[in-house]
């Protein structure tokens, strides 16, 4: 259920300006609604895109979340690579990395 819950949070946040406003003013209250592990909750609280990626969040949910955070594209790509460097391979889902750690795809 847990990865499901983390993704559900991202889904709700990405599509709902009301959730976005609440998450800005009282992030804890929003996160309390979801059944998250400590690791998942901390990853979201610290905007740790790399760890959320490794935990297996669907890339489309994650990409829209990074956009919501205002993260420029090269930073978003770098954050995912850093996540894999620090925490190892993607643990679930269909968005695993298939290129080498220091590979530059699309010159990024």
């Amino acid at each position: 259920m847990s990865l499901y819950s983390m993704q559900k949070f991202l889904f709700d946040l990405n599509r709902d300006p009301g959730v976005q406003a609440l998450f800005r003013s009282a992030p804890g209250n929003v996160l309390d609604r979801y059944d998250l592990t400590r690791e998942e909750r901390a990853a979201i609280e610290t905007h740790n895109i790399g760890l959320i990626y490794v935990l297996g969040a669907n890339g489309q949910l994650l990409m829209h979340y990074a956009a919501y955070l205002g993260m420029p594209w090269p930073e978003y790509i770098a954050a995912m690579r850093n996540g894999v460097t620090q925490h190892g391979a993607v643990r679930a889902g269909i968005y695993a990395m298939t290129t080498d750690l220091n590979e530059k795809v699309a010159n990024i």
Binding site: G59, Q60, M63, M80, Y95, M97, T99, A106, N107, I108
Partner: peptide, 10 residues
């Protein structure tokens, strides 16, 4: 394509 991953562009 491999969108929204570090492979984006492959």
């Amino acid at each position: 394509h491999w969108p929204a991953t570090p492979d984006s562009g492959k």
